[in-house]
Every structure is written in structure tokens, then in C-alpha cells.
Amino acid sequence: MVDIGLTHIALPVSNIEKSIEFYSTYAQMQVVHRRIDANAGVAVAWLSDNTRPFVIVLIQTQSVQPILSPFAHLGVGCKSREAMDILCDKARQEGILVEEPKDSGYPVGYWAFLRDPDGHTLELSYGQEIGLTVEKTANV
């Protein structure tokens, strides 16, 4: 099978293990590929939530200038408002909750911003209906 469409986003990270732990915890992602890049000699990991053919590519670098910050972000849909609140409570305790959860109504839904170990922003959300919106427009 040949990949078509948006397949990944690559993020520079300063500590690949901390970033893997963050995205495993807050985005329910797991490592699906890992290597030391032969040309650059740096650690690379692909993370997926296994819901679609899309990965976050983490590339360990010496220095990171946050690219997805403060408003640019990755977005992850949660299975329920309660599940999102549990993650936000954990993020609050860890000091990485940037924007408290708020309900912005349809189509934005319930959302919050977190900061990953390198300062990139991750949005947790519930009720955005992105999948349903895409499905509706694909059938037009």
C-alpha cells in the first residue's frame, strides 16, 4: 500500500524518552518504529495512536526552538469529557497545563492546551466532531 495524504508531522525533541512518555500518556500513542538515523546519527521514533495511518516523528536534536507554540498545536480527541479531565488533572499536577479546560460550544467543543517536554503545544479535546465533518464533506 502506498501512503497518500497527510501521513506525519516531525518534531525536534531534546530528550526522545521524555517525549515518548509524554505522548504515550497524553495522546495514547505508542512507538511503531525506532532507529538511529544513519546519516545524522540521531535517535528517531515514530508514534501512532493506531486509529489512522498518521504518526508523529520525534527527532532528537541538541537544541529545540518550539515550533508548535503558543497557539500552533497538535490536536488529540479524547473518548470522553471525563477522560480528558483526568488527563488535565495529571497535567496540572505536573505543571504542564497551559490553558485550563473550557467548553467553547460547537464546533470547537471542550478543549485544553498542554506543553510537551520541549514546549510544543498539545490540545486535548472532546466534541469537536472533525471526523464527522470530514465524512459529511467527502460525501457531497
Rank of each mutant, 00 (worst) to 15 (best):
Q62G: 12
P53K: 14
E82N: 12
V98A: 12
V55C: 13
E94D: 14
C78E: 14
E82S: 12
A91F: 01
I56D: 00
V64R: 03
S80V: 06
M84W: 02
R81F: 06
I56E: 04
G75T: 01
G75S: 12
N50F: 14
E82R: 09
I67W: 10
E94T: 05
C88T: 09
H73D: 05
L97K: 03
A91W: 03
D85H: 08
M84R: 04
K90N: 04
A72H: 11
H73S: 07
R52P: 07
R81Y: 06
R81N: 02
Q62W: 11
G77K: 14
L68N: 02
C88N: 09
T61E: 13
E94I: 03
V98N: 07
L87K: 08
N50D: 15
D49H: 12
A83W: 01
C78L: 12
N50C: 14
I86A: 12
C88Q: 07
H73Q: 00
C88V: 04
M84V: 04
L74G: 04
V76R: 15
E94P: 06
V64H: 05
K79I: 14
D85M: 13
K90L: 11
Q65M: 07
C78I: 11
I67D: 09
P53Y: 14
F71N: 14
L47C: 01
Q65R: 06
G95R: 02
P66L: 01
R81E: 09
I56C: 06
A83I: 07
S63Q: 15
Q60D: 05
I56Q: 00
R81P: 05
P53G: 12
S80H: 04
A72D: 09
